[in-house]
């Protein structure tokens, strides 16, 4: 990347001891500042991405997403990034913060202050513009595992909902917390080297449905994760589980799928008459 270009808020960076006194005569400090280096890339004009520096007022209750919104609203309206819920649920605002994949709505500036922060698009994905990545590869793979409950035959509505015990819920619950934020893909060097790898979140979601007592679609789902670029590509780096903001353990889902499919294969070899469907 080229040398950063700097844009600062007017007045930002002023000596913090200079400031107006409040009604009690206490001299209030002017806001501190913090510098963000943000990736900029416009496919119409740029051949490669570059970093641009923005200096903004600092508050210790600000998250990185607030800082980006401040830049967009006050300094540079052309800065492009995804966000939606601002409370760690939608999974839209995942970016690389000082080299680590994070949800920017849950990453406070005070964690880094007074050091500068580098905000880049999630690693391992193509950059569409600025901080926006092309997620089509992930979405295609997600479609392939059919992440919904599959029934061989749907029961009529009049018969009510499919019941499930707490123990049955516990089987898959942790994998159901995935919000498809793709931080695990950005942390996975296997996916970074070869994006034909199915990847952590998709396999975790496949396992979530395969473990669901209401589901009957395991046989349809497994071919999408047990092929050559599926679970067997994983070398268990484990960083996907470290960066997950929802406490999901995709590495565990992958290794357990390897174990289960191996047992299924052995069972099928020894007892070819056994049922393959579940």
């Amino acid at each position: 990347m080229e040398a950063p270009i700097t844009i600062a808020t007017p007045g930002a960076g002023t000596d913090r001891t200079a400031g107006a006194a409040d009604h009690r005569g206490v001299r209030r400090a002017l806001p501190d500042t913090i510098t963000l280096s943000v990736t900029r890339f416009d496919p119409r004009t740029d051949s490669t991405p570059h970093l641009q520096e923005y200096t903004i007022p600092y508050r210790d209750d600000m998250v990185v997403l607030d800082a980006l919104n401040y830049i967009k609203q006050r300094l540079d309206g052309t800065l492009t990034f995804r966000w939606s819920c601002r409370m760690g649920i939608c999974g839209s605002c995942g970016m690389s913060v000082n080299g680590t994949p994070r949800l920017t709505c849950g990453t406070f500036l005070k964690e880094f202050y007074p050091r500068p922060i580098t905000v880049e698009p999630l690693a391992n994905f193509p950059i569409v513009r600025d901080l926006v990545i092309d997620m089509s590869d992930f979405m295609r793979k997600l479609q392939d595992v059919q992440p919904w409950i599959i029934r061989k035959e749907e029961k009529p509505v009049e018969e009510g909902v499919y019941l499930q015990s707490p123990a049955q819920l516990d089987e898959y619950k942790q994998f159901s917390m995935c919000i498809n934020c793709m931080l695990c893909y950005a942390a996975c060097p296997v996916y970074g080297q070869d994006n034909s790898f199915t990847g952590p979140a998709v396999i975790a979601l496949a396992r979530r449905y395969n473990l669901d007592s209401r589901d009957e679609g395991k046989a349809k789902r497994l071919p999408a994760i047990t092929h050559g670029e599926g679970v067997w590509e994983c070398t268990y780096v484990g960083e996907c589980s470290v960066v997950c903001p929802k406490g999901v353990d995709p590495a565990k889902a992958i290794q357990q799928t390897k174990w289960d499919t191996t047992l299924d294969w052995a069972k099928q070899l020894i007892m070819p008459w056994s049922n393959k469907d579940r």
Binding site: F41, P43, T48, P49, A123, N124, F125, P126, I127, V128, D134, M135, S136, D137, M139, R140, Q143, D144, Q146, P189, G192, Q193
Partner: peptide, 19 residues
């Protein structure tokens, strides 16, 4: 699911990165 008209397509012109 799986029908080509509903498959997300890659963005043309996106900057490809290498590890």
């Amino acid at each position: 699911a799986g029908t080509s008209e509903h498959r997300p397509r890659p963005f043309i012109g996106a900057f490809q990165r290498t590890l």
